[in-house]
Structure formats: C-alpha cells, structure tokens
Write a protein that binds this DNA or RNA. Structure first.
Lengths: 333, 333
DNA sequence: TTGTAAGCGTTATCAC
DNA sequence: GTGATAACGCTTACAA
C-alpha cells in the first residue's frame, strides 16, 4: 500500500513521466497504445495523483478559501452551505477558517488561507476593514458575502437590509399598526443598523414618530427577544406589533408574549427576519423577511470561480422577500 | 507584490536557504546575528511561507479532511462546527467535502480528500460500508462521528440512540402515558431505527404493547411531523403523547396539533430529539433528548490529531441527556 | 508523438 | 553553526 507516483506507472507502462502526465491531464495527444498502457497501469497500481505536488508545479491549488463566522447562526451557516454547493463539480475544494466575528481572528484566518495558496477567497461577513482586505488579498479573486463594502473597493454579494427592514415594518403599518416596537440586533452590526434604519424610514414615510421606548436593544439571540418583551411589559409600554431583528429574536419574543398570556397575532403581531427553516413551523408560523442566504453563498462562489477564469464581476445586491405567514393580523380599532 | 520565497530572504540576509528554513522552523540552532538578519528580512519583504511547497517537502499537509452531510440538518451542522472548533489553534486546517448522504458522492469526496494528502480524516455520518472505508483510508488516522461501526473496524464517536429513544419514551411513560405515538425518522437511517428500538424497548419494559397504528413513518422533516399528526387525526386514532424522531419533526407535529385545536401539553405531550437551539423557545418549550453534537465533533477531531501523533484511540459512546422543558405533562386520568 | 530536464518552494541530509 | 545539494511528485518547455 505504498505511495504510487507517476514514475511508478511510467515504468510499468514503459513510457516517460511526461507521457503519463499527458494522458492523465489530456494535455497533449498520445499514441493510443501507450495511452492504454498508461491507463492500464494507472488503475492496476491504484494510482491517485498527489494534488499537493500538482499544485506546486502548476501554481494553482484548486482550493477556495472560505472565511466563515461560526456562531451557530442559521443565516451564516446557510451561506456556507451555499458556498459548498456552488463549488460542487468544479474540481475546487473549499478550505475553511473561522473568524468568530473577531477582526484579529479573521486576519489570522485569511493569512492562513493565503499561505495555503488558495486560488480564490469567499469572505462571509466579518469585521475586517475594507482596506485591510484589499491589502491582504491583493488581486486574488475575492468576494465578500453578506456584507456591503464601498463599491470601488471590492466585490460583494449582499442583501439590502435597509429595504428589508422597511418592508417588514411597512407590512405591519399596512395592517393598521402604529405602536410598532423593534428589537434591534447587535449594536455595531451593520445589518442590524440597516434594518433599524429601514424601520425608521417606514415609520417616517407613514408619518408615525419613532418612540424611543419602542426601540429595544438586542443581540440577535432568542434571549434578547425574551428580555425585550419582558422589559416593555414591566414598564407598562403598550404596543401592538413587534419587528424583531431576526427570527431567533422573534422566537424569544413570541415565547415571552405567550408567557404573559398575550396572543400572537391576536393581541400582538410579530415579524422576523431571516426566514430560517423553523419559522414555518412555529405557532403561529412566523411572517418574516426571506434572505436568499444559500443563493448568495452559491453566487459568490461561482463569481470567484469566474474571476479565476478572468471574467469580470460586479457587486450584486439582493432584495429581500417578505414571507407572509400567520403572525401578523390587522389591528382592529 | 511578487511572491517572496525563502531564496529571496536568504539573499537579503546573506545566508543560505537552509539557514532561513532553520530559523523559520526552529529546527536547529542559528547564530543570533544571522537569526536576526533573517527575521528582519522576513518581515521587511513580507514573507509568507508557501504551505503547499512545505507540505510536499515534509510529506504532511497539515490539513484534516472532513466529510460532511449537508442537508441543512442542525445536528450534522453542529457536528461540523465542533470539528472546526476542535481544530482551532492546532495549526491544522479543515478541508470539506460534502457527501449529500449518497454513497457514491461520499466515496468521491473521500478520494478527493485523500488526493489532497490530508493527514487525517473526520467522517460525519454517511452510508459508505465499513469495509470500504477501511479500504479507502488504510491506516490514515480516521474517526467516524455520529455513526456506529463494528468495533473492530474503525474508531467512532457516536451517541447511543437506542438508549436515547428509550429515555424519551420512558419519560412519557413515567408521566402516565400509555398511548404513545412515535413519528419515525428516515426509513433506513440507523439513528432512526435505533430510536425506534428504544421506544419499543421502553414500552415493553412497561408492559405496554406496541400498537402499529401509533407507529408513523417520517423522514426527520417538519412536514413529516405535520403529516403524521394529520394522519392519526384523520383515522381517529387516540393518543396522549408523541415521541418525534427529531426536533424538526416535533415542530411539525406541534403545529399540526395546534391547528387541530389540540393543546400541548394539555391534551397531548410531546418529546423531541436533538435539542436544537430553537427548541428552548417554542411554545411550549420542547422537552427533548440532547445530543452532544458539537462536543462529539470536537472530540472526534482531537482524536484524529492525537492519532496523528501516534496516540491510540478507542471508540467513544455518548449517552444522551433528556432536557425537560414544558411539552410533557402528567396524564390526568 | 515522445523523452529529457528544468523547475515549483520547502525541508532534510550531508559534509565542512 | 552553516551551506550545498538532493529530494518531494508533478507539470511543462524544449528538443528530438
């Protein structure tokens, strides 16, 4: 069970290394008898090409580096799945590093990827400043998913979170709600900020003032949804609807509401953000903004592949789509 | 921004390639002045070692191959996260291939990993027969997670699903239930079969006969939970409790129940399996079997690392832990 | 069409 | 301590 190299099969087939390489890669025409001899020896000896050696010789590693943010977030996990899907059948393999949403970790990770001679890079989310990304990656085909960088800086595939927040809030307004609370996401997270901006924009457009007491802090966790609702209840704040920064937060809010004996959507309407799988099966099924996470991951990946082949690419913005289920009802006045 | 190699820094530091290599790896003592000169040149020129070349020379790639089963299953995804976590700080990077729960895909994937000279292998789930794994992987450090192979065949880190099913069912029995339905998982999936076996065992031990009408087919999806409940209702079958093969199925069942106006746990008690994040926030919060998915992933990975260093390893079976929440109540007779 | 030989960037084995 | 020099396994001019 020793390592079989092309030299071994070269000998076995009575040809030179180069010829072996040629038939294996179809790089050049080879006499059919020798060809068969090579192919023959190849599987007789059970030859498996050494990708590492090939990479070194070719200068291409056939790997794509992927920076993930493993926080157990369904959204980012789904993007990662999209990346894997986008790579399938391409001959490229993904190699992962995890950024843990920490700048230094991310930089270390990207460096590691670079050291491994990846042919391209897919960066999922992250906090590394745009300039640093450019500095690190140079002209290596790179695309950033789920994050919007200045247009002239780098290629991004992202979702319009301002519009998402706007749509979600508007949906509530259209159902007659005016006392709409928002449970925000992580304080410095761009997506959270954008969704909040969309919320304000929708209210403004409807002539509804933003009331500070209806703006609750959160961190994308279910617990923060629970806390926010309890807080409002404790303070005696009245509201007829909640826009949660993501579905997990909405789940928490829904549970807290239920504990307080407040019916959804009977007494309070609820909208989430992400459309994660579980949201279709909560009671009631959650109305939420769909983010094409998997699709974005796949598209970003294919873009990297295309860039490797010299094709150009420009940033792509996705629009969200509100999935209307049963957690919102018309406000009966 | 050209590629800087050790040759470049060798020249810049007036030493030989070998010396550069030595200081970079600490392989041997080097005069401190030369050492400084090298280190100096190293970051002046911004040298980044080429991992591919190093791998070829050393015969170790510093990568661990991971076979995943990306079906969007929280359970398997969590294991993958555990793998990443287990690798962190080790210097090894994970390289992923996806098996999609298809034998041929899995074999192709493993082959690809092997071709990339991975130093070890973590196989998550999968359907490839034990003998084939052995044949493919030879003596490469390999451990299989979330799957139990014959003891003498390979190293596994898995959970005892029979016991899990047993505990879950027993919990229901202890609360006075006798008409306990089970919504099974994928027909040929070992875990599903084991959980079902545990269910039967618990009933038997309690002297409760297994009634066929209470055994519903399912496929681990929420929809199959919905279907199962609707089916029972349609057939007029009475039951006071449901053991769902996993949490997603439980979610579906819970929704269907709610649609039928059946209260949980008031009229029907419900137990799931997986303890995925969302289960703590459903209404009511779901009582479910906790599987230490992340932990299993991490442990398997560390085991592979240890095996690379020549340490032995033996299969490890995890016990499940029932997380009691609010979806089960005592049957009032 | 086919073989020889020169890399690819490191590490490792020798002498010195 | 340090520097040649030979691997590592494969690709790719360059000849023939």
């Amino acid at each position: 069970m020793k390592k079989v190299t092309i030299l071994d099969i070269a000998k076995a087939a009575n040809v030179s290394k180069s010829t072996v390489s040629r038939v294996l890669n179809g790089t050049a025409a080879v006499a059919s008898d020798k060809k068969r001899a090579v192919l023959d020896a190849t599987d007789r000896l059970g030859f498996k090409p050494n990708v590492v050696a090939r990479s070194l010789a070719r200068g291409r590693s056939m790997t794509i580096g992927v920076l993930t943010q493993i926080i157990g977030s369904p959204f980012y996990d789904t993007i990662a799945q999209g990346v894997i899907a986008g790579l399938s059948g391409s001959g490229y393999s993904p190699i992962f590093v995890d950024g843990q949403w920490q700048q230094d970790e991310e930089v270390v990770g990207i460096r590691a990827l670079l050291g491994r001679q990846v042919d391209g890079l897919v960066l999922i989310g992250g906090d590394v400043p745009a300039e640093e990304i450019v500095e690190l990656c140079g002209d290596l085909p790179t695309v950033i998913v789920a994050r919007q960088l200045p247009d002239d800086v780098h290629n991004c595939v992202f979702m319009d979170n301002v519009d998402g927040g706007f749509q979600a809030t508007k949906h509530l307004i259209e159902h007659g709600h005016r006392d709409i609370a928002i449970i925000k996401g992580l304080a410095h997270h761009a997506d959270a900020l954008d969704r909040f901006a969309g919320y304000r924009q929708a209210l403004k457009e409807a002539g509804i003032p933003v009331r500070d007491e209806l703006v609750l802090d959160g961190d994308f966790s279910a617990d923060s949804g629970v806390d926010a609702v309890e807080q409002m209840h404790h303070r005696g704040i009245t509201f007829s609807a909640i826009f949660a920064a993501n579905d997990m937060t909405a789940f928490g809010a829904r549970l807290a509401l239920s504990r307080l004996g407040i019916e959804v959507p009977g007494q309070v309407s609820l909208v989430g953000f992400d459309n994660q799988m579980e949201s279709a099966y909560t009671t009631p099924p959650l109305t939420t903004m769909h983010q094409p996470a998997r699709q974005m991951g796949a598209e970003a990946t294919k873009a990297v592949l295309a860039m490797i082949d010299g094709e150009p690419f420009e940033s792509r913005r996705y629009g969200g789509r509100l999935v209307v289920r049963e957690s919102v009802s018309r406000l009966s006045t």
